[in-house]
Amino acid sequence: MSGPNRRVALKVVGATLGAGAFAYAAQPVAQWGAGLSLEETLRRHYKELTPDELAQILRRLEAETKEKYGVDVRIDDIPAQEGVSFGYALNLSICIGCRKCAEACHQENNHDRRTNNSYIRVIEMEQGSFELERGTVDYDHAVPAPGKFYMPVQCHQCDDAPCVKVCPVEATWKEKDGIVVVDYDWCIGCRYCEAACPYHARRFNWREPEIPADEINPDQAYLSNRIRPQGVVEKCTFCLHRTRRGLLPACLEACPTGARVFGNLLDPSSDIRWVLENKRVYVLKEELGTRPRFFYFFDE
């Protein structure tokens, strides 16, 4: 075989091998791509949808949930209410750290069962110190333990929310009633909001959530507790699928001591207003200027 011919042959062999290697290496990417729905990928932003388009999306999501999890669920889009601005306060004097709120959140919001995910993280702190660094979250002794107090932390629904500011695609925004929501079908999963949040309020779906069919809460809302897709950020929505229907949030109902107070800040006769006006109120990391709607308070 002459020189140039051998060269050509070598090149052909090399190119074939290269193409084969590429096909093999790209296989998982192709598989991932095949699993995507074009309809979902190309849909417009939540705020740009017409009511018809939104209804169509809700039905599609219900069908997808049925297919994937084998349950009939109802996914609603519930707009905010006029004259309502939500606020939440938590009594640090009577919280006993039982984590029942975290558990209720876990169940209500269809969280991944493997990770015990919850929007609430309860910190056990030393009496006489507000130093978070001395706190623990994985305590497993009987509570309330002597010499300790407990601080559940969840989304503070800040009025000047750093997470909303940093989102490059407006996948998260503040609603009229003060709730910061995420459109799970618009989020690109960059996790900048997770870096920006000072309250560890955001969670990323590191994998697709796994929930047994009989444990799925079928009463769902688009911006709240519908089962999240893989690779997007989620957060506490003050259970908007409940609270926008007048119900109390799940974490409040689960609280055995009544440490949690929820209500309409615009209603002067509401319990939340009474707490803010009469109790000693503490705002976590107030110095950051995020203007939370979540307050801590103390008895005497």
Partner: peptide, 11 residues
């Protein structure tokens, strides 16, 4: 680093 590179066009 993106969780959903399929939605890159949003940016």
């Amino acid at each position: 680093d993106m969780g959903r590179p399929d939605r890159m066009w949003h940016i």
